[in-house]
Structures are given as C-alpha cells and as structure tokens.
Design a protein around this nucleic acid. Structure first.
Length: 580
DNA sequence: GCCGTTTTCGGCCCGACTGTTTTCAGTCG
C-alpha cells in the first residue's frame, strides 16, 4: 500500500512550506491530507483506479492529481522542486525539539552549517548564543534536543511506553491529593508507536502533584514545571508530559489531550455548528453580553452527549469514519478483553518456550481462559528446537493426559507449522490431520520477490486443514520491514479457504496491523488474536495490545474467533481447500 | 489547498509554556 509513502511526502511538503512561511492553511491542508491517507483503510491505488480519491477527506483536485502522479511515476515533481531548493539541514533541524521553522531559518542564515553535527558543534562552541533572541538557555536546549534525537531516533513502541505510563500513574494515584488520573494521547488510543506519554490528573494541589512527578526516580531531565504542566525525560529517554486540570474540565481535557488532533478538529467544528465552543476547558455556549456558559466538560461522555454524539472509544478517534458512524448510529460494538476466551498462539518448552505444558495449562486456567492452543515450532526451525512428527505425536499424548485432569479448561492441540519457500508445510499431512488446528507462518527466506512470497503464502492457505495464518507480514516494529507480499491476495485466499488471519499481539509485531485487520474482517476473514507467548509470566499480557489493535481496526466480538467457545471456533475454521 | 442545509468565496481550532522580552514570538500539542 502506497498510502503511507504518499502521506510522508505530503508531510515533507508541509515541512518545506513552513520553512518558506507559506499560507498556514495551505500547510495544514497538506498535513490533514497526510493524516487521512495514513488512516485510510483502503489502498489508495484502488481508490484511484475506482475514481474515488475525492472520497478521502482532505483530498481535492490538486492533491488528488499529486497522488495519481505518484502512483504512475513513483515521484511527485513538486516535492522534487521543493527539495532542490531546500538545504537538507533545514529539514533535519525541524526534527529537533524546540526548533521550529523560524529558528531553523535563523540558524541556517546566521551560522555556517550543513548538518546537525555542525549545529551541535556550533552550540558546544557557544556560537549559537548571541544570535537575535537566543541566549545561553536556548543554546543549551538546542544541544539537548540534538542529543535526544541522536539517542532516541524515532518513536517508542507501545509495549515500551505503556508499562512506563502504568508505573507513573500508579505512583501518582497513591498521592492523597490526586483525584482522577488517566493516560491520554496516542498511548490511550493505542497507536503502535508513540512519540511521548501524556498523563492527565485532577487535584486541589497542582504544584505538589507536578513537584512529585518531576521528582520521580525515573526522571533524568525536567523540561517544564509550570502550574498546570510538567514535562520530563526519563532514564529510558522517553518524554512524559503531565497536566493538571480542573475537575469540571477533566472530560474536556481528557478528550482534547487524547486526540487525535484530526478527531478533535471535527468535534470543534460540530460544536461551532451548534453555536458552541469546545476547548480543553469544556464545551461552552455563548450567551448574552458576549459571555459564555459551560454546558459540559466533567466527563468525556458528557461532552459527546452535548455534541449530539454517542461516546466514541479512544481507539477509534482517528477521523477515519468514526464521526460519521457516530452520527448515523453505526459505531461498532468493539471487542474487549473480557470477550476473549482463549489464547491462540502459544509456545512450550517442547520448542523454544520456557514453560512446561503443565505450567502453560495452569497459566491459562489462572488467566480465566477456557482454552489455549499449544503451537510449538516445527522441525525446519532447528534453531527453535522445532518438533518432528514423532515428537509432535508424543506431545499430543501428553496434552491428552493434562486435559483429562483439567476442568473447564482445555489445551488445544496445534503447531506453528513453517511455510516452506515453495508453499508446502513442514510436517507430514497424516500428523497434521490429528491436530485440532494449525498455525502456519513464514520464518525463513524473507527477501523473496513479492509475487513469489504471495504465491508461497496463498498456496499454504489452500492446504485442507483448519488453520490460522500467523504474523502475515513478518514485520518487527522499528527493527525489520514487512516482507513484500500482496495482502489483498492473501486475504482473498484466506476467505476462500475458510482460514483465519492472526493479529499477533506481541507489541513489536502487531501484525496484522489495525488497518489491514479491518480490511480482512470486511472480507469475512475470521480474525484470531494470539500473544505468541514464550514466557507466560511476562508475555500473556500482550493480549492487551492485540485487543487494542483489533479495536483500532473496528473489530467486534463476532469478527474475532477467540471470543467463541473452542467448539465453535473449530467449526468456524472449515479447513476446506481454497478455490483459487 | 480544501470545502459548503449558513458560504463556490472566504473562511479554515485553541491555548500554555519558555525564553526572551517590557508586551510577545515561537513552539508544541
């Protein structure tokens, strides 16, 4: 899908237009279009072919033409022209926190710099201070900004940010003068990576809360400590912002700081149409004498209600159709963690897991699950101690013994069968037939050509067993690109063969991603959520991220097979041979 | 550059904090 690539180009154009001090509404038009493209659930190439580009919000005549230009030629001439006239270092400087377009231009014009290293050197030699409106403090901040960028190099995976946020919230909520507290921002929306952590509290002693916050042991640097906002960098180089808000504005503030920005803009527009004003302080109605009266703000529910909308879950707030769905009453009833009856991707110490079958069963029962699948690797994956046919048969007998002792809980017999480069499966069919269910996955030869990889996976989906395709793109967030594969063809093959596709809940995988999961579910492909746990104590809780991804993909319980009983989920995976 | 049961032209979301200032610009979210 080219959606993301084009979104990046539009953002880049917006950056350059900012440096040129272009019309700010033109700049935000590019940014809005980029955001909408990134969240658009369908392939922009398909939309273009169907002549429906203009249905993507924020895409008009001009940007539509630029998208088509990119789809045809792989380039956008306008960006090339802009880039030719823009020194790289100006764009690099925009990524430094505290440097915006004005400062970047000033530094570029006044200092002889070609890259961030030059700027760092200039700051170290104190050649930055002394420029108009720049003194020692600003120079120091620029230096710290560059160093932070060097260290953090991008965004933080949700699996890193979420536990840290939980820890901070836990510490703050123990303070007697902290009333309400919640994470906000992209973390609350469960984006797969976040730029920072936002936390919101209400308190009668804001200064004390912020003092406690900036003194937390994990804090290594304080960026701000005002009366309503504290901002710090932790020892893991993650920025955390804390905001203290008034009780009567908590809902409005939570809504505002949860975003997304695009969702908020839509809400403000709705407020305006109703002759009201929405800000982080509340929803206000204008009354006589130019004054205004607060009509909502205490809770998010209240804000949505007064705007004439049902409550919209944070995971949906991307302006990806949720406002329209809310208006016409078609919001999905999203799947929740309480709907989940079992985990559908799990390893034991028979391959590369750390827990014995008994321990896995006990962990599953304790988690309140009805079932849990044992899906150890197969023989090709020697590095993971993959199981041969003989060992798998032995393992099945062992599982039978354990199941005989369990009440109200069952281990399902499965295997994470390697999809070999030619699309065949890494175990004899006579043994596969004895399993309840198989999980199929690619673990080797990631760099195949797109057509070959697609053919490989599609062929594997056509084998006549009940099955789940695991981590279908192989991506590792921040570490490994997805392999080249035609996911539309894969989704079709899964639908034809009655197979499920997994949302792998490991926070560095989240594969399927939310947009593709939404697409697969729309094509009537059952979705499975599996944690890929190798160590129960630390990884079973990844289910949380899988559920969040499903919710971001608009999935309801009916779309997710592990909301079913074991019997129903097995009957739903037909195991018929694919037709294509 | 987009968009329209208020508009095809004239709008386009709103406010806090910082660092430099003496009333505010720049940045950020």
């Amino acid at each position: 899908m080219k959606n993301k690539e084009i979104a990046e180009i539009f953002n880049r154009i917006a950056d350059i237009l900012e440096l040129r001090e272009a019309n700010r509404f033109r700049i935000s038009a590019y940014r809005r279009a980029a955001q909408n493209l990134e969240n658009y659930p369908l392939d922009v190439a398909e939309a273009s072919a169907a002549g429906s580009l203009h249905e993507i919000p924020g895409i008009g005549k001009d940007l539509g033409a630029k998208i088509e230009e990119y789809l045809e030629s792989g380039e956008i001439e306008y960006l090339n022209e802009l880039l030719d006239e823009t020194p790289d270092v100006l764009l690099d400087m925009l990524r430094v926190q505290g440097i915006g377009p004005k400062t970047a231009l000033l530094l570029y014009n006044e200092l002889d710099i070609e890259n961030l290293a030059d700027l760092k050197k200039a700051a170290l030699e104190h050649r930055v201070q002394g420029l108009p409106k720049i003194k020692a403090k600003t120079e120091e901040n620029i230096l710290k900004g560059i160093e932070f960028l060097e260290r953090s190099a991008g965004r933080i995976p949700i699996g890193t940010a979420f536990p840290l946020a939980e820890e901070i919230i836990d510490s703050l909520s123990k303070l007697p003068y902290v009333d309400k507290i919640s994470a906000a921002g992209s973390l609350r929306r469960f984006k797969e990576t976040v730029g920072d952590i936002d936390i919101l509290v209400t308190s009668k002693k804001p200064v004390d809360v912020i003092r406690h916050f900036t003194a937390l042991p994990a804090v290594t640097r304080i960026l701000a400590d005002g009366k309503t906002k504290g901002s710090v960098i932790t020892s893991t180089d993650i920025q955390v912002d804390l905001r203290v808000v008034a009780k009567e504005a908590y809902g409005a503030a939570l809504n505002y700081f949860t975003g997304s920005k695009e969702h908020n803009i839509r809400l403000r527009e709705i407020a305006q149409q109703k002759k009201m004003k929405l800000s982080e302080y509340g929803l206000f109605k204008k009354i006589r004498g130019g004054k205004e009266r607060r009509v909502a703000g205490k809770s998010e529910e209240e804000v949505y209600e007064k705007l004439g909308l049902p409550y919209i879950a944070p995971e949906l707030r991307e302006d990806a159709g949720e406002i329209e769905a809310a208006r016409d009453g078609s919001l999905p009833s999203l799947v929740t963690i309480n709907d989940i009856k079992g985990d559908l991707h799990f390893h034991s110490d028979w391959s590369d897991g750390t827990a014995s079958l008994e321990e896995v069963a006990e962990a599953g029962r304790k988690a309140g699950y009805k079932y849990l699948i044992i899906s150890d690797h197969t023989k090709s994956l020697t590095i993971a101690n993959g199981l041969s046919e003989e060992r798998l048969v032995k393992q099945m007998k062992e599982i039978d013994r354990i199941n005989a002792r369990m009440k109200g809980f069952k281990l399902l017999k499965g295997s994470e069968v390697d999809i070999l480069p030619d699309g065949s499966l890494d175990l004899d069919k006579r043994v596969l037939k004895k399993l309840d269910l198989i999980i199929i996955a690619v673990h080797s030869r990631f760099k195949m050509k797109k057509n070959d990889m697609t053919r490989r996976v599609v062929k594997a989906l056509q084998h006549p067993f009940p099955k789940i395709l695991a981590h279908p793109t192989g991506r590792l967030i921040g570490a490994r690109e997805a392999y080249e594969i035609d996911m539309d063809a894969v989704i079709n093959a899964a639908a034809d063969s009655g197979s499920a596709i997994e949302i792998n809940a490991h926070p560095l995988r989240l594969d399927l991603d939310a947009a593709t999961a939404r697409k697969a579910a729309a094509a009537h492909v059952p979705i499975s959520i599996g944690t890929d746990t190798h160590t129960p104590a630390t990884e079973m809780k990844y289910m949380l991220y899988g559920i969040a991804t499903a919710r971001r993909g608009w999935l309801e319980p009916k779309h997710v097979i592990n909301t079913h009983s074991a019997a129903k989920l097995l009957s739903r995976l037909s195991g018929k041979k694919g037709t294509k």
